[in-house]
């Protein structure tokens, strides 16, 4: 089923925002095909009328009260930032 080519690897890498050198695309395509070829044995399993697992725990989502209990900690939020200025995170300019 899967036959990932160089262009597909480049496309996935772009989606995942990971720079991959051109000469590494081909070998990576091979590795991914190898793994995907192996996982494709799942197609043997009959899953007609089977609901996909939505949660491994048999519990309901708990709700929080609508109270402000957090925030007011800009210093903590920014503490590990590679670049922060005037209370903002600073990143290379986004060209719109």
């Amino acid at each position: 089923m899967s036959n990932i080519d160089k262009a597909t690897v480049a496309k996935i890498a772009r989606l995942a925002r990971i720079k991959i050198e051109d000469q590494k695309l081909e070998p990576l395509a091979g590795e991914l095909n190898n793994i995907l070829g192996w996982v494709e044995q799942l197609s043997e399993v009959n899953t007609d009328n089977i609901e996909p697992m939505s949660s491994v725990v048999d519990a309901k989502l708990r709700w929080r009260e609508d109270v402000v209990s957090d925030g007011d900690k800009a210093d903590s939020v920014l503490k590990n930032a590679p670049n922060a200025e005037y209370g903002f995170f600073a990143v290379p300019k986004v060209i719109e």
């Binding site: 939020v77 200025e85 005037y86 903002f88 995170f89 600073a90 990143v91 290379p92 300019k93 986004v94």
Partner: peptide, 10 residues
């Protein structure tokens, strides 16, 4: 706000 940077407020 800055010539090289985009500032982000969350």
């Amino acid at each position: 706000q800055h010539p090289q940077f985009t500032y982000v407020d969350l």
